[in-house]
Lab assay of single mutants.
Amino acid sequence: ATNIVGKVKWYNSTKNFGFIEQDNGGKDVFVHKSAVDAAGLHSLEEGQDVIFDLEEKQGKAYAVNLRIK
């Protein structure tokens, strides 16, 4: 899925991951530091509006192509 809109539920910059809540009511999506770095960001803030693509690997969904809304 592409261009999914959501809000950062939480992001832990020490542990380098967090979760994004989808605006469409879907399951929360894992986001890793690598996606944050690829977006040219240092971190994510709770409540921040983002747009992302959804990829699945080994049955787990995660956010890629992250951008600030």
Rank of each mutant, 00 (worst) to 15 (best):
V50I: 14
I20D: 00
I20V: 08
F30P: 03
A63S: 04
K15V: 12
N3F: 05
K7D: 01
E21K: 13
L54Y: 11
D28F: 08
D28S: 06
F30M: 04
A39G: 11
K7V: 09
S34C: 04
A63P: 01
K33S: 11
A35E: 11
K60E: 08
S34W: 15
V50A: 05
N3C: 04
R67T: 07
F19G: 01
A61T: 13
D23R: 08
F52Q: 00
F17W: 09
L41T: 05
D28A: 09
N24E: 09
V64S: 09
L44V: 05
A61K: 15
F52H: 02
D37A: 14
W10A: 03
Q22Y: 13
K69Y: 07
D49P: 12
I68W: 09
N65Q: 05
I51P: 00
H42E: 14
G26P: 09
N24S: 13
G59L: 14
N65Y: 09
K15G: 08
N24H: 11
I4L: 12
D37W: 07
K57E: 15
G25F: 12
W10P: 00
A39V: 09
F17G: 03
E45L: 07
K60V: 11
K57H: 10
L66V: 14
F17Q: 03
L41P: 03
E46H: 09
A39I: 07
Q58V: 12
E21D: 06
V36F: 06
D49G: 13
E56Y: 10
K57G: 15
G18A: 02
D49R: 11
A38L: 11
R67W: 05
K7H: 15
V29G: 01
N12H: 12
A35H: 07
V36C: 03
K57S: 15
H32L: 05
K15N: 11
T14D: 14
E21Y: 10
E21G: 14
V50F: 05
N3T: 05
E45G: 12
V29T: 07
I51M: 13
G47V: 03
K57T: 15
V29E: 01
L54T: 14
F52V: 04
I4F: 06
A35Y: 09
V31M: 07
K15I: 10
T2H: 13
E46C: 04
V50N: 00
K57L: 07
G25T: 14
N3S: 10
K9T: 03
F30G: 02
G40P: 02
Y11Q: 01
E55F: 15
H42N: 09
G47F: 09
K69W: 07
A61N: 13
H32W: 04
V5W: 05
Y62F: 12
G40Y: 08
Q48K: 13
H32I: 02
I51A: 05
F52Y: 13
V8P: 01
L44N: 01
I51T: 12
A61L: 15
F52I: 06
I68C: 04
Q22S: 15
K7E: 02
N65V: 03
I68N: 07
Y62S: 09
E21Q: 09
V64N: 07
L44M: 05
D53T: 07
L66Y: 00
Y11W: 09
E45H: 13
K9A: 05
T2A: 14
G26I: 07
K7P: 02
L41C: 03
Q22G: 11
L54M: 13
N24R: 13
Y11I: 03
N65K: 10
Y62K: 09
T14M: 14
K15P: 01
Q58P: 07
N12T: 13
E45I: 14
T2P: 11
I68H: 08
V31Y: 05
K9M: 05
F19T: 02
A61Y: 14
V31E: 00
I51E: 12
A38I: 04
S34A: 11
E55I: 11
K57V: 15
A61H: 12
Q22T: 11
Q22K: 09
F30R: 02
V29L: 05
K60T: 08
N12Q: 06
A35T: 15
I4S: 05
K15R: 11
L44G: 01
A63N: 00
